[in-house]
């Protein structure tokens, strides 16, 4: 059977679904922390805000590229799904794009315009980040229920927007705990303590509203015998949340020990949440609407991209690690010369 699968190229769509999943997860983690820093930039002033933005300055470009790759692979491998998703989400996608535009250019403009205009670009940086995170959360919510209409569905998507926004704020504050020192690090710890509970609240709200919208997710989750395995996901997430809370209460430790741990825990929570979401609609590519096997492109095109991806991915990972090593340690003010 496996031999047939390999021969016929039927495994290709699943390989691509996996690649898209990995790109989207990496995007949520990587751009998640820099979008989160954007959200938090509103609560800092002057030199502190500069230091926060300096901590993400060398990375945000490449982080955002994972979104382009994820959407690009979706476009390439599942053109029907791509068209269906993006036309359903036309307005939130456009909102997110405008948010990305203003936030992206603010990195440069805020330091390259006359001083009296800088507040304008700081504001664009925050509001752009906020619009991006809210619209991304809203879109994931809409996607999860197959773009179902109605008040309950909209409410569900709004709860999801809150969940994702607080999740990004958590990633951002954990990144700052890792990359900053002294006062700013202490403030980041406080932000993280608020964000983790906001995120927990968002998770509870979405879980509570979900059954009113669509029972499919629950039917799937509560089916036996997977339920025993699946119960582990929320249980471990709750455990990680509690550990995070306790850890944040203890930080900062002498010698900056364990400053990396909140970020690692936040990444683990993201991964678990992501796996749970994906499991709830697999083997669909659009929940309840379109299955992975029915949406795929021609095998000859998929093969070409897959080989390219297989060659490029390790190189990409290599130079990403290199870039992070170059800028490792606490963030300093950025300058070109």
């Amino acid at each position: 059977m496996i031999h047939d699968l390999v021969q016929s190229g039927q495994w290709l769509p699943f390989a691509f679904a996996l690649l898209i999943g990995v790109s989207m997860l990496l995007y949520a983690i990587l751009d998640g922390y820099d979008l989160g820093v954007g959200l938090l930039s509103r609560f800092a002033r002057g030199a502190e805000r500069d230091r926060m933005i300096a901590s993400i300055g060398p990375f945000w470009d490449a982080n955002e590229t994972w979104l382009v790759l994820g959407v690009g692979l979706l476009l390439v491998a599942f053109p029907r799904a791509h068209g269906d998703i993006l036309t359903h989400l036309y307005l939130p996608v456009s909102g997110m794009i405008l948010g990305l535009i203003f936030r992206g250019v603010s990195f440069d403009f805020r330091k390259k315009v006359p001083p009296d205009q800088q507040p304008r670009w700081n504001a664009a940086f925050f509001w752009g980040s906020l619009i991006v995170t809210l619209s991304q959360g809203y879109m994931v919510g809409r996607f999860m229920i197959g773009f179902q209409e109605g008040v309950a569905s909209q409410l569900y998507a709004v709860c999801f927007a809150l969940l994702v926004t607080s999740g990004y704020a958590l990633m951002g504050s954990c990144w700052l705990i890792l990359k900053c020192e002294h006062d700013l690090q202490r403030r980041a710890i406080r932000w993280a303590r608020i964000a983790i509970w906001l995120m927990a609240l968002g998770a509870v709200l979405t879980s509570l509203t979900a059954p009113f919208v669509n029972t499919r997710i629950y039917d799937r989750m509560l089916a036996f015998p997977e339920v025993t395995l699946l119960l582990a996901l929320p249980l471990v997430s709750v455990m990680l949340t509690v550990i995070m809370h306790v850890l944040l209460g203890a930080l900062p430790l002498p010698g900056d020990r364990l400053a990396w741990l909140p970020f690692a825990l936040a990444v683990m929570i993201f991964v678990l949440g992501f796996v749970g979401l994906v499991y709830s609609f697999y083997p669909y590519i659009i929940p309840g609407r379109l299955r992975i096997v029915d949406a795929a492109s021609a095998p000859e095109s998929l093969r070409l991209i897959l080989w390219g991806t297989a060659v490029v991915m390790p190189v990409l990972a290599g130079y990403t690690v290199f870039a992070y090593r170059v800028f490792k340690g606490k963030a300093h003010d950025l300058s070109y010369d």
């Binding site: 300055g57 060398p58 990375f59 470009d61 490449a62 590229t65 130079y319 870039a323 170059v326 950025l334």
Partner: peptide
């Protein structure tokens, strides 16, 4: 990715 990743090193 090549541009976006090495731009950080080139600039900063």
């Amino acid at each position: 990715f090549l541009e976006a990743t090495f731009l950080g090193i080139m600039l900063f």
